[in-house]
Amino acid sequence: MVSVSDVPGAQGLSKDQLRELYYKMFLARSVGERERMLNRMGKGPFAVTGEGHEATQVGTAFAMTPGKDWALTYYRDIGVALTLGMTPRDLLLAHLGRAESIESGGRNMPSHFSSVDLRIVSGSAPVATQVPHAVGIALASKLRGLDEVAVAYFGDGAASVGVVHESMNLAGVHRLAVIFVCENNQYAISVPASKQAAITDLSIRAQGYGFPGVTVDGNDVLAVYSAAKEAVERARNGDGPTFIEAKTYRLVPHTSDDDDRRYRSREEVEEWEKKGPLIRFRTWLEENDVASASEIDEIEAKAMAEIDAATEYAEAAPTPDPATAMRHVFVEEE
């Protein structure tokens, strides 16, 4: 499927793939915005989104094989979920807590992504708890002789949790096919990176676990994709884990219940908006003749139409039957 690109700097991606990358990034941005809007309208009780993280999320997930490789996401990973194949409809059904939501049928908070078919494993809210699951999944892949890759996503705050160290250490010992992706947006809610770690690049920690670590510009989708592609190849070839730290910036409050004006200036946010992943990639696409301005407008219009249809569908979808609240505590025997 992959055609060799003649676009310089495109990391071997074809023009169609490059346009697809932009489509997923714009879709992720706009689903996040839609969820926050629905929350402000009083329709969705809670929103946690990832505006600003699109290059990191889409760039890494684009290097995976959906349905074969495993994604252990956290609550900001709208772009990962959409790139691997979940749809705006799936995410908005979850946002509104509808019965049909494949994430949880209205049990989990939204943005706790899940799809058995796509191997996006249901996540929780305590940060970093999903990281050892990626290691265990990769351990099972090794024991079963399968060439699957497990990717654990987490933030810079979660990077401080002890189980991340435990997980990287275990993955290093057994040279497991795990990729650790830290989406370093420089804030753990209000706590800045300088209070989170005494080092600048978290990726240097990988050295302590015996595998490579790399820090990339998390707002440059092609740089992220390139790092992820290399990590996937290493993992699939049995050469062990990689730690990718993608430096990015969260352009929105932590959640719908956070007010980021209390801990960072508007000027700072505006500066990062100018360096945002969407505007950068859009410019790149135009400058390299991959897509014209009008073609990009069409891509965006297509994404918005999909989100509008998904919103309409999700709002009309039924809420869960209260009688089902007691189900699935345990596996129901056939």
Partner: peptide
């Protein structure tokens, strides 16, 4: 935590 966490992951993968 890694022992139990890895066990959970391995159980997810069959």
């Amino acid at each position: 935590a890694a022992i139990v966490g890895a066990a959970i992951g391995a159980s997810i993968n069959g």
